[in-house]
Design a binder for these strands. Structure first.
Lengths: 111, 111
DNA sequence: TTGACATATTTCTATATGGGAATATATTGA
DNA sequence: TCAATATATTCCCATATAGAAATATGTCAA
């Protein structure tokens, strides 16, 4: 078997940096494909293909306005990622606390 | 160009479901490869390869104990994902609020 | 040293990609 | 109807998988 399809879920779709960049750009507001192309400095066909993947997993929504296609983020689709990572939050906070404590113990020794 | 390597960053490494499962399992505590194999119901070589990818991006750490290799999560490496998704939190909360308001307006109309 | 156990690596293969280039489709205004 | 604008699709190709199978490496205990 090969890697899971980019369109299989949000995790796979967002593995690609360019698609995360596009989503971040869309976070401000709805944008046309041309606006995305200009902002991202990518070829238009590439942008269209990335948008297709994002749409495939429900990360963006589209509506037509004349000849333009206006894309916007569907933030709800990002929640599964946020929630999965949140289950580890306790762990890294614990890690950070350990680092802080060791640093303070070090400082005390140096005084 | 093809897809970015699974080892290029945490986003790519975690796109694979099996690797997320392994990390979730390790969230409880340090585990040997055999324990992971038994829990995940995967072939041992597959587990070793997934662990190699996870280690490659710093998502796990290993230490040897006799003939066993004990793997544990490095939760810090998950933070970039958490933080990236957090930038959209405001948006989905806004979405949820909208859904709630529409539901309430609907209820009021039906009374 | 040898055998058993634990883990890692190699080889193979089908498959899906991302980008580039070219082209197709859709919509508008004249 | 036609040209211009906006977007999508197709074709090509180098590349990196994940899993299966076989094998290699490392460590201990007797």
């Amino acid at each position: 078997m090969a890697r899971a399809a980019t369109t299989s879920d949000a995790f796979n779709a967002l593995a690609e940096r360019r698609r995360r960049d596009i989503l971040s750009y869309l976070a401000m507001r709805e944008r046309s494909v041309t606006e995305i192309v200009d902002a991202m400095e990518m070829e238009q066909p590439s942008v269209s293909k990335h948008l297709k993947v994002l749409k495939g997993v429900g990360l963006v929504e589209v509506r037509r306005e004349g000849r333009q296609m206006l894309y916007k983020v569907n933030a709800m689709a990002i929640r599964p990622l946020h929630e999965w990572t949140s289950t580890f939050e306790r762990l890294w906070k614990h890690q950070l606390l350990g680092i802080k404590e060791r640093a303070e113990a070090n400082n005390a020794r140096k005084q």
